[in-house]
Nucleic acid binder design. Structure first.
Length: 491
RNA sequence: GUUCCCUUCGUCUAGUGGCCUAGGACAACGCCCUUUCACGGCGUAGACACGGGUUCGACUCCCGUAGGGAACGCCA
């Protein structure tokens, strides 16, 4: 179904690294809002920082977005990198001529000017302003030059100028009605003449953001809180062009456990990290959604569909939130266990492959074993240690298992176990029960002394899923081999 | 320094002036289930940053203070 509303929401990352979980949450909210109101979700790439932007980052971020299932209808195509949609191009680096046109317009209308100030001069000015207790704004001598004069000077001068916006001298109040923060007031005097176009011809964030959001008919802008103070400059630009302003929603920041802005030193912060650690995209979305938003039904576990249905801006929280990996794990575990066994098995394949596990291809076996193991899994990666004992040729005795093997009563139990297993045709749950009973009476052991040796002889660990359910999942030859290995470690 | 934003259990949050003796979830702890480990069930503990107002009444509105964050870039 194509979009039939005027709701157009964009996610506009800058490709200067991986997709951060904060960015992912912004994208999620934008996506949910678009979906909820049958609007269009747009991906625009803000790559005007030539030094830091890379195509590789752009591809990575798009992949992460795809992994999360946040598909866009308009924007840069993740495969071909081509522009899709009628408002393109969607990479800001390809829109330079557009920005230049709008800058020229401002120049002609005396609302902007060429500024030839050098870095040193600017530093001096700012220092002086600071010393005199004034706001650190620049005071450009080129501000009131007629355009022609500046153009002539530009031709003969060796320094390439920037284009600055002419912030009116008289103070004015700008009001922003923010979707999450309500009414926010700004005084125009807090900003000085800011750069619109860099000396290399590339526009600056605040400028292209306004032009693009306007030209692309964006109706709602969800972005991080750190952009809130940028809004003043942007409102000035909107005004200069007489553009209609979209609705803004400034989202709170995600914090680390020390209440500082989440960054690399907190550990995993990229969506891809979580992917590799075995988190499910639906769990990631669920958890991220709850970090700054709450379900009107007080639901904690929500599918993507439910998220779309229940999402709205009125339940967005303006306070910053700490990223709690423990809760993420719980959310992930819950989604994981809800998966049907066929799907879960498929998702586990890469992990098994990576560790060269030799596991049965029988579907019933797979389902049975998953049923047994999944209650102990929080992430997909947890399956590795859980299934290791079920894979052939990977038997290992843990330190705690060796403790069990050192017990006096252990050796006879395992020897009995070996002889009984040898005699048994089919190791069903019932057969196992009988074997256990026989050992109990013949070896005169019970409780821990009976149970643990068998467990260790089967999986090499004193803890894990129920042995009577585990044994039927294993081959007799393998079982015997394991028991022999265990016996070698018995005193 | 200036401006802006934020502040409810350890964490995520509910709360839009009386429904609050402040509810839920994760984590913690305890009990039950279980011859292990998990899962599951039940339960316990745990918060309105502080100080002033406004009001019959304030977690909720206003003003301060404190703390945290952001912006003041030719980064986004």
């Amino acid at each position: 179904m194509s979009s039939s509303s005027d709701i157009r929401v964009r996610f506009a990352p800058s490709p200067t690294g991986y997709l951060h979980v904060g960015g992912a949450r912004t994208a999620l909210y934008a996506y949910l809002y678009a979906k909820k109101y049958n609007g269009t979700f747009i991906l625009r790439v803000e790559d005007t920082d030539l030094e830091r932007s890379t195509e590789e980052s752009m591809r990575m971020q798009m992949q992460d977005l795809k992994w999360l299932g946040l598909d866009w209808q308009e924007g840069v195509d993740s495969e071909t990198l081509k522009n899709v949609g009628e408002f393109g191009p969607y990479r800001q680096s390809q829109r330079q001529d557009i920005y230049q046109k709008y800058a020229d317009d401002l120049l002609e209308r005396q609302l902007a000017y060429y500024c030839f100030l050098s870095d040193e001069e600017i530093d001096q000015q700012k220092e002086l302003a600071k010393k005199e207790g004034r706001p650190p704004h620049i005071n450009s001598p080129y501000r009131d030059w007629p355009l022609q004069k500046a153009l002539d000077y530009k031709k003969e001068s060796s320094t390439q100028p920037v284009i600055r916006f002419k912030v009116p001298k008289e103070n004015r109040e700008y009001i922003l009605n923010d979707l999450v923060r309500g009414q926010v007031k700004f005084q125009s005097e807090v900003v000085g003449d800011f750069v619109l176009i860099r000396s290399n011809g590339m526009p600056v964030y605040n400028f292209c953001c306004v032009i693009d959001d306007s030209l692309m008919k964006i109706s709602h802008v969800f972005r991080a809180e750190e952009h809130l103070s940028n809004s003043l400059r942007q409102m000035m630009i909107y005004e200069a062009f007489n553009f209609e302003r979209p609705q803004f929603g400034h989202l709170s920041i995600i914090l680390g456990s020390d209440r500082q802005k989440l960054s690399k030193r907190h550990g995993a912060t990229s969506v891809n990290d979580y992917n590799e650690q075995g988190f499910l995209p639906e769990a990631m979305n669920n958890f991220l959604a709850l970090l700054g938003w709450s379900s009107p039904k007080a639901q904690e576990i929500l599918s993507m569909k439910e998220l779309v249905e229940q999402f709205d801006t009125d339940r967005l929280n303006s306070a910053s939130a700490v990223f709690d990996e423990t809760k993420l794990k719980w959310v992930n575990a819950t989604h994981l266990r809800a998966l049907d066994h066929k799907t879960l098995w498929e998702k586990l394949q890469p992990y098994f492959l990576k560790h060269n596990f030799d596991l049965p291809t029988d579907l019933e076996w797979q389902s049975l074993s998953l049923g047994l193991m999944k209650t102990s899994m929080e992430t997909l990666a947890d399956a590795v240690e859980l299934f290791r004992p079920l894979s052939k040729g990977t038997f290992q005795l843990s330190e705690k298992a060796k403790e069990v093997l050192s017990w006096e009563s252990t050796r006879p139990v395992i020897e009995k176990w070996v002889s009984l297993v040898k005699k048994c045709d089919k190791l069903t749950e019932e057969a196992f029960g009988e074997i256990q009973q026989t050992i109990k009476t013949e070896c005169q052991v019970k409780g821990k002394n009976l149970f643990m040796p068998i467990r260790v002889a089967v999986i090499g660990q004193p803890h894990g899923a129920e042995v009577k359910l585990l044994v039927p999942l294993m081959e007799k030859s393998d079982l015997l081999e394991r028991a022999q290995t265990a016996l070698k470690s018995c005193p």
